[in-house]
């Protein structure tokens, strides 16, 4: 059964200059136990999608269209109280800023116990036992449960957040740049562990990152986002080794590879469009090496380039 089905999702932020359409017409689905990566540069709307899935958009943000079906239930139709019960029990989140995601004046263990007793009919002592189990699961010494966040290293904080995300055995975890603040070695360990835990507990993961090489390593499916739209989606190998959309090609070319030949990294010239203005044609056309006059005027359509590999471009 499909775990998460996002249909034609649009999200806008009310700003002083008007409605900023941060996400427009994004559709993807995720089967239970599978992982989907969302990649794109800063401001492309990937974090906004993550927050919207949690029902945690800031006060000036709202979903302007589309549906988010979790196990067949439309999250948009839930009341605030029903949504509160969904959070962390069915959908948990691993945060972008893990360094500051823990409350500095509360013991780490207490913050996890709190997440458990809020959603499960268990006593604090039982919750604590579960937290001890979680610590072992993510490879952290159990005696550190009663430490404060500042006594943890960056990697430990990240592990603690992962352990916390697993606390209620959710079916879906949204991991927003979970390893960005860590050094490469710790990053790799944590990615491996995340992958193992995902298989062990059959969790669906939406992995949000700006780094397409990391996403390709962890996820089965990759969705590439540009200026609030999904522009290419397909299997990880397909998208990473055979990118079709000019933006994805440029994105892959802008990251170094360790094993491949030494070639110059190519930055993408120009800037993404300002999303406050309505855009008629292709959003990438101003930066696209292959753009034609028609690209500016016509709304691009989805093309299937291979089985399960789709591109939002009329010229690929």
């Amino acid at each position: 059964m499909t775990l998460l089905d996002v249909q034609n999702l649009s999200i806008g932020y009310q700003t002083a200059e008007g409605l900023l359409q941060a996400v427009e017409g994004v559709s993807f689905s995720l089967e239970a136990g599978q992982s989907l990566g969302l990649v794109g540069e800063s401001g492309c709307g990937k974090t906004t999608i993550g927050m919207a899935l949690m029902g945690l958009l800031p006060p000036n943000g709202r979903i302007t269209g589309g549906h988010v079906l979790l196990n067949g239930r439309d999250l948009r139709e839930l009341t605030e109280e029903e949504m509160r019960q969904v959070r962390w029990k069915e959908v948990a989140m691993i945060f972008q800023a893990a360094m500051n995601a823990l409350n500095p004046v509360q013991r780490v263990g207490d913050q996890m116990i709190e997440a458990i007793v809020e959603h499960q009919p268990v006593s604090k002592a039982q919750a604590r036992q579960r937290v001890e189990g979680l610590y072992q699961l993510v490879g952290m010494p159990v005696e550190r449960i009663d430490d404060y966040p500042h006594q943890y290293s960056g990697g430990m904080k990240q592990r603690a957040i992962i352990a916390m995300a697993l606390a209620n055995k959710p079916k879906l975890i949204i991991a927003d740049e979970p390893t960005t603040a860590l050094d490469v070695i710790v990053q790799d360990q944590i990615l491996q562990e995340t992958k193992n835990l995902q298989h062990e507990f059959n969790i669906g993961i939406i992995f949000i990152s700006h780094d397409i090489s990391i996403v390709a390593e962890v996820c089965q499916t990759i969705g590439v986002m540009y200026a609030g739209q999904l522009v290419e989606i397909g299997g990880a190998e397909q998208v990473f080794y055979d990118p079709r959309h000019p933006y994805t090609k440029a994105l892959v070319a802008s990251f170094p590879t360790l094993a491949g030949e030494r070639k110059e990294l190519k930055p993408i010239p120009g800037e993404p469009p300002h999303l406050i203005n309505a855009i008629m044609g292709c959003r990438f056309c101003d930066r696209c090496p292959r753009s034609e006059a028609q690209c500016k005027l016509d709304r691009p359509a989805w093309q299937q380039v291979a089985a399960g590999h789709h591109v939002l471009c009329d010229h690929c």
């Binding site: 945690l56 959070r87 945060f95 500051n100 995601a101 409350n103 997440a115 916390m164």
Partner: peptide, 12 residues
Amino acid sequence: EDYIVTARAKGL
């Protein structure tokens, strides 16, 4: 602060 977002995400 970020930990307030965490608290919210935890469904408190």
